[in-house]
């Protein structure tokens, strides 16, 4: 059967509208990728969460850190409601003071040691539940909601920075939840730095109040920040730099 002229017209018009629609689809595909990043960026700012634009870190100037001074330790423990359980061996210790002596030269130095907030954190690697994790802004934390208290992370940490809580905890601070059966360590005072960009971790504040100003806090990603400038100036080192962990805590004049 031969197609009538009206059938041919219908076919032409169908083809035309099909091609038009195809053209629209092509245009949409070309425009969509341009819109997507804008949408996802907008979502992130709307939620006001942490982002990888910053990487928070500390620089310790060991020449300013005084032997025998433990202001940073007291400041940290006051901030997070950490008190002795009466059993010294199992007390939580988020930050501790270490005195060093060079056997050859006899030179003495003192420094605070805490979680180094590693970029490639061994504690995060070994955690079986994902409770040990690194936030987008580089802060390494324990999510105590999912921590099962296995203490793998404590064995993996080269800095002995973590503590297991053996006994029930009461009188917690409302912004520093702590409890029996979980592992904890320095949080870089996330509750303070999340609340206000101008707030410093408690250890840095205590050190400054004591008149030493040995602990500098800031954004390692920002090359203009005080901490980045100080690290470059003093060529601040990582402790156990041989492990290539890219630590967030650096030590000057070590």
């Amino acid at each position: 059967m031969k197609p009538t002229p009206s059938d041919q017209n219908k076919a032409v018009s169908a083809r035309r509208s099909f091609l038009q629609r195809l053209g629209l689809l092509g245009a949409a595909t070309a425009v969509a990728p341009a819109l997507l990043p804008a949408i996802s960026r907008a979502k992130v700012t709307a939620l006001k969460g942490v982002s990888d634009e910053q990487r928070w870190g500390l620089m310790i100037d060991t020449s300013k850190c005084a032997t025998g001074c433990d202001a940073c330790v007291r400041g940290c423990h006051d901030e997070h409601g950490i008190s002795s359980t009466g059993n010294e061996h199992t007390d939580a210790q988020w930050i501790r003071k270490i005195d060093l002596q060079d056997n050859l030269t006899g030179q003495e130095s003192s420094l605070p040691m805490m979680c180094q907030h590693c970029d490639s954190a061994p504690c995060v690697d070994v955690c079986p539940t994902g409770a040990s994790f690194k936030r987008a802004d580089g802060v390494v934390l324990v999510n105590k909601h999912t921590c099962i208290g296995c203490r793998y992370c404590m064995m993996a940490c080269p800095y002995k920075a973590r503590s297991f809580i053996h006994e029930p905890v009461t009188d917690q601070k409302s912004l520093a939840p702590r409890g029996q059966g979980t592992v904890e360590s320095c949080t870089l005072c996330v509750h303070r730095i999340d609340a206000d960009d101008d707030l410093q971790p408690a250890c840095a504040v205590s050190c400054t109040e004591e008149g030493h100003s040995a602990i500098l806090f800031g954004d390692l990603n920002d090359s203009e920040s005080d901490i980045s400038i100080a690290i470059a100036k003093h060529d601040a080192q990582q402790v156990r730099s041989d492990l290539n962990l890219n630590t967030g805590v650096r030590y000057a004049k070590l």
Partner: peptide, 12 residues
């Protein structure tokens, strides 16, 4: 909200 707060730092 606990995951938002702990993991993503959303406190507001």
């Amino acid at each position: 909200q606990r995951d938002d707060t702990v993991i993503r730092g959303i406190r507001d």
